[in-house]
Measured scan of single mutants.
Amino acid sequence: KTVHVNGVQYDFDNPEQAERFAKEMAKKAGLQIQFHGDQIKIE
């Protein structure tokens, strides 16, 4: 899974790890999470 945070890309082999990371980042920055198939976007 790939997580995009403000244009920066983070790759994870483990989907659960990717989602946990995305939730942490979104919570910290007060941003929205969008799921697009294999990609998670935080903007």
Rank of each mutant, 00 (worst) to 15 (best):
N14T: 14
P15F: 13
V5P: 01
V3S: 01
Y10F: 09
I40L: 08
K23H: 09
N6A: 07
F21N: 00
Q39Y: 12
R20S: 10
I42Y: 06
D11R: 14
D13N: 05
K1A: 10
G7R: 03
Q32I: 13
T2M: 05
Q32R: 10
F12Y: 01
K1E: 02
I40F: 06
D11I: 14
M25K: 01
D13Y: 02
N6M: 10
V5R: 02
K23E: 08
H4P: 01
E24M: 13
I33K: 02
K27A: 13
Y10T: 00
N14G: 03
E43L: 12
E16S: 07
K41R: 12
E43H: 08
H36N: 12
F21A: 01
F21I: 01
I33P: 04
A22S: 03
K23R: 14
R20Q: 12
R20N: 09
E19I: 15
E24R: 10
P15S: 12
E43D: 09
H4S: 09
M25F: 09
V8F: 07
E24S: 08
E43I: 12
R20L: 12
E43C: 15
Q39E: 10
E19Q: 12
N14R: 04
A29M: 15
I42T: 06
P15D: 09
G37N: 08
G37D: 08
E16T: 05
K23G: 03
V3C: 11
Q39F: 12
K1F: 15
E43N: 08
D13R: 02
K23A: 10
F21P: 00
G7S: 04
F12A: 01
Q32F: 06
T2G: 02
I42F: 07
V3M: 03
D38L: 10
Q9A: 11
A18C: 08
L31W: 12
F12S: 00
F12I: 02
E16V: 07
K27G: 10
I33E: 03
G30K: 03
Q9L: 10
N6F: 14
K41P: 06
F21W: 10
N14V: 03
M25V: 09
A29T: 14
V5A: 02
I33D: 03
G37H: 07
Q9N: 04
F12N: 00
K1Q: 06
Q39R: 08
E43R: 06
A29F: 15
I33G: 03
D38K: 03
E16P: 00
F35H: 08
D13A: 07
K28S: 08
K27V: 09
P15K: 11
D38C: 14
Q9Y: 06
G30L: 05
Q32N: 10
I33Q: 03
V8M: 08
G37I: 06
Q17V: 05
A22C: 14
P15R: 11
R20H: 09
P15I: 12
A26K: 03
N6E: 04
K28A: 12
E19R: 14
I42G: 06
K27F: 13
K41W: 15
G37W: 07
Q17A: 12
V8L: 06
Q32K: 11
K27S: 12
E16L: 07
A18D: 00
A18G: 01
Q32C: 15
K41E: 08
I40N: 05
V5D: 00
Q39D: 10
I33Y: 06
G30R: 03
V5N: 01
F35N: 05
A22I: 11
L31N: 08
E24D: 05
I42M: 08
V3W: 04
M25L: 11
G30A: 08
V8W: 07
T2D: 01
F21Q: 00
K41T: 13
D38P: 07
K23V: 09
V5L: 10
A26F: 07
I33T: 03
R20G: 03
Y10C: 10
Q32G: 06
D38R: 02
I33H: 03
I42K: 04
I40W: 07
G7K: 02
A22K: 04
A26R: 05
K41I: 15
D38A: 09
A29I: 11
Q34E: 10
E43G: 10
M25Q: 07
K28V: 12
D38F: 13
H4N: 08
I33S: 04
V3P: 01
K1T: 13
L31A: 11
K23F: 13
R20A: 13
F35Y: 13
K23N: 07
V3A: 03
I42N: 05
V8R: 11
L31R: 02
Q39W: 11
A26G: 03
V5I: 12
F12K: 01
N6G: 08
K1G: 04
